[in-house]
Amino acid sequence: MIYMIITGLLCGALLGFVMQRGRFCLTGGFRDMYLAKDNRMFYALLIAIAVQSVGVFLLIDLGVFEYSAGALPILSVIVGSFIFGIGIILAGGCATGTWYRAGEGLIGSWIALAGYMLMSTMMRTGVFGPLNQQMQTSSVLPTNSIAETFGINHWFIIIPFVAVVLFIIYKQLTKPKVAIPKLKAKRTGLSHLLFEKRWHPFVTATLIGIIALIAWPLSAATGRVFGLGITTPSANILQYLTTGDQRFLNWGVFLVVGIFSGSLIAAKASKEFRFRMPDVKTGINSFIGGNLMGFGATLAGGCSIGNGLVMTAMMTWQGWIGLVFMILGTWTASYFVFVRPRQKAKAAKLKQEVTTA
């Protein structure tokens, strides 16, 4: 138990610290792909996937632990991932992003977390449990592993993927750089690097990939053979608090608590922590978004981390299909939340100008 608490908290704290300082936000990244045609955060995600994938499969081949991807509930993954994508736009952050933004003092993230944890619990042991089970058992394909589907060794998928990621990195880093005005440094040395200097998204992604890799053997040592995970542990926290049943306390629970703690430390040290109360509309959207996140992530078997980072690294259909529909969900929500209101406002302004002319 002590090992589980210490390693879970430390791994989570590292992840929360790195995400907060690197501003690693997949919600913003997916949204910017559509609104700003900016793919940098998506490329950063691919780096984290590649780092984790190489490391984890090396550990598996060395016999450190065994892992089976199981079957693929394809309908559940598609529907759940799309709903999750809509939810993270309304909530203003994905599952992990909401945890680390809560550590910065953002009250809207606390509201989103409440909805997220509540709905995740309801989907597991509450009134929506039967619906979740029915969806999970319908339209199930026997093989989730991409390598097993094609009858090839997993390295025949991982190596080409890593090569593509390296090519993307090369193309991005050799682009002509846009001059960005530098603020006068107030700190020096390590303090400046950790708490003041802007972190490059690719550096942040590499660190996240390493942390995601470390999570596997640490978690497996406690009997939980999986890497980073947010949705189930978040539900487990509420289940433990409402039942007192210690069976809900696992490595993942301490991981998410650590994410909050690490982000809080980083935000305090960088003087970015402050309580920020949302307006009524934002608060309502955050709660609705949190509920959609909990519903979608549970149905899909993972969130932007569980499916988008971990199951993609394991080269599963669930991970990559989930990631695609997650992104489609964010684009759909971004259209209705950001694009359409702007179009209506622009049309109304044009109509007013014509009327007054």
Rank of each mutant, 00 (worst) to 15 (best):
S191K: 10
F202A: 00
I78K: 03
T332V: 09
S334K: 08
R23W: 07
I230L: 11
L141D: 08
K184I: 14
L10T: 13
F338E: 15
A347V: 08
G63K: 15
V257M: 15
I327W: 15
I158H: 08
K37Y: 12
R23E: 13
V257D: 00
V64D: 00
V178F: 05
E104Y: 12
A221F: 11
L249T: 01
I107G: 01
A179W: 04
L193M: 13
L213V: 03
N250Y: 03
T188V: 12
I74E: 05
Y3K: 13
A71Y: 10
F202E: 00
F325V: 06
K268D: 01
I305Q: 09
Q239S: 06
W331D: 07
G296P: 11
F260G: 01
T356M: 14
C303K: 03
L131S: 04
G229T: 09
W251L: 03
E353P: 08
G289F: 12
A357D: 10
M119Y: 10
W99D: 01
G301E: 00
A114T: 08
L46A: 02
V140T: 00
G209R: 03
V178N: 02
I321N: 05
G103Y: 10
G258A: 06
Q318Y: 05
L46S: 04
F84C: 04
A36W: 10
A348G: 12
M119G: 07
G97M: 13
F325E: 07
L350G: 00
F128H: 09
Q352K: 14
L131W: 14
K197N: 07
L113F: 13
C94S: 06
I49T: 00
L58T: 05
T232Y: 08
T312K: 10
F260I: 14
N250P: 04
S234P: 07
T96I: 13
F156N: 06
L141N: 02
L213I: 06
L75K: 09
I86E: 03
M33S: 04
M33G: 07
G80Q: 11
I2K: 12
I327E: 04
A313E: 06
